[in-house]
Each structure stands twice: as C-alpha cells, then as structure tokens.
C-alpha cells in the first residue's frame, strides 16, 4: 500500500464528508422541509430503536448496580448505588451504548437504503426530477436523528436507573435511599452532558450513514460493503468523539 496515496485518499474522503455535512446542516433551516419524510425517518430511527435501547439500558443498569453493590458492601456504602449507576449511565454509558446500538441498527439501514437507491439509479432519477437530494435524503434523516438520538439516550438512562433499582431492592435498599443518592453524585452539567453527547453522536451516525450510502458503487456487494463500513466508522467515531467531549466537559466543569 502506497502511504502517499492512502493519505491523499483519506484527505479526499474527509473533505467530501465535511462538504456533505456542511451542506446538510445548512439545509436544516432551508425550505423545502419534507415533513413527511422527516416523520417517517423519525418513526424508523426513533420508535424502531426503542426496544433495543430499552433492553440495553435495563440490563446495563442492572449489571452496573450488581457490580457497584459488590464493591460498596465492604464499606457499608450500598445506599450510594443509585448515584453511582446514575452518574455512569447519564454521563457515559447511556449516550455511548445507545449510540453504538443505533449505529448498528440505523446507520447500516441508512447506508443500505441510500446505497440501493444509488445503484438502482433512483438518486439520479430524483436529481433529474428536480429534487435536491441532499435536502430530501440527507437533511431529513439528519434532522430525525438529531431529535431521536438524545431522546433514546434519555430513555436508556431512565431504564438503566430502573434496572439498577430492581437489583438494589434485592439488597434491601429502599426506593427513597436509592433516589436520594442521585443528587449526591450528579450536578446539572452532567444532565447537559448526557444530552449533548447523543446529539453529537446522532449527527455522526446519520452523516456517516448517508455519506457511505451516497458514495456506494458496485451493485449489491457494494451496498453490503458500504453498510459494514458505515457501522465500523460511525462506532469508532462515536468512541473517539466521546473521549474528546468528556475532556471538554471536564475543562468547563
């Protein structure tokens, strides 16, 4: 592999991704808005992902509580389990895990859908029929994801807290103790962090999915490869972005 060519390829891809993202963002506030497409996508991405993020939240919360209780028991501090589950879920695991789940489920679906439209010339047909494909196909999906992802993360957090309580109740921790420990571990900024992160992750998942879909080539095999690439790239970008966003939030704490 020629390193110079690889670097050039990477820079070209990055530039194209950046340009598509900028164009899609500009069109968020520009007409036409394609409300029907937006609602359809919101239903597919948001409502369609509810089951998977509920399961993720519930079981992660239960595991978190189990692990925390084992660690806290020798110090007679089991009453703090609610706060520990909450702070970990709201700031980190809730946004990241729900985003990774959505990246796998929705990111691949966006890419496969757009990729199929590209290889069957439907995207070209739309352009000829007078449609701005970025507004119709990309911006509508981006808007739906920007609304859906923070809501899904909040639902994940809520289910995790519930799951944590179910386990804590088994250790004779009453609900009052559980909920009262939350403010001892969390501040208001943590809630903002818990919503800001999935908002950014949603942007990444939607844009990577759309970019991979619209640059698909090579028929059915190309669509499969693009979907796989979209999931891998968006998952990695979510994890890397999470690190840098955490650093930023720590600086401004």
């Amino acid at each position: 592999m020629n390193p110079e060519r690889t670097v050039k390829w990477f820079l070209r891809e990055f530039q194209a991704f950046f340009v598509l993202s900028a164009r899609a963002l500009v069109r968020v506030f520009r007409r036409p808005h394609y409300y029907r497409e937006f609602v359809t996508q919101l239903d597919k991405m948001g409502v369609g992902s509810l089951f998977i993020v509920c399961l993720t939240g519930l079981f992660t919360g239960m595991v978190m509580a189990l692990q925390a209780l084992i660690q806290l028991k020798p110090f007679a501090a089991t009453s703090y389990v609610g706060g520990m589950v909450a702070v970990t879920m709201v700031k980190e695991l809730g946004p990241v895990l729900s985003s990774l789940m959505v990246a796998g489920r929705v990111g691949s679906s966006i890419t496969a859908e757009l990729g199929t439209m590209v290889v069957t010339e439907q995207v070209d047909a739309m352009r000829v029929e007078g449609t701005d494909v970025i507004t119709r196909l990309v911006t509508s999906r981006l808007k739906a994801m920007l609304v859906a992802m923070p809501l899904l993360a909040v639902i994940t957090d809520a289910l995790a807290l519930l799951g944590g309580y179910v386990i804590a109740a088994g250790y004779d921790i009453n609900i009052l103790m559980y909920w009262e420990s939350l403010p001892q571990f969390m501040v208001f900024q943590d809630l903002i962090e818990g919503v800001a992160k999935p908002f950014v992750f949603g942007f990444i998942i939607a844009m990577v999915g759309c970019y991979a879909g619209l640059t698909t080539s090579g028929g059915a095999e190309g669509v499969g490869a693009a979907a796989k690439r979209a999931v891998v790239v968006s998952s990695i970008m979510v994890l890397v972005c999470d690190f840098f966003m955490t650093k930023i939030f720590i600086v401004f704490r």
């Binding site: 199929t116 069957t120 010339e121 439907q122 070209d124 047909a125 352009r127 000829v128 449609t131 701005d132």
Partner: peptide, 23 residues
Amino acid sequence: SERELIQVRKNIAIVFQGGALFD
C-alpha cells in the same frame, strides 16, 4: 451549480434502463 441544473432539467426527462422507480 446543482441548483441551476435543476432549472435546466425541467424541460428534460429520462427513462432509465431499470426504470429507477422510487421503491
């Protein structure tokens, strides 16, 4: 630009090889 091309394309239509109907 793509926006200007949309205006030009208003007077043209195409029947693609596979039809390219929107699924």
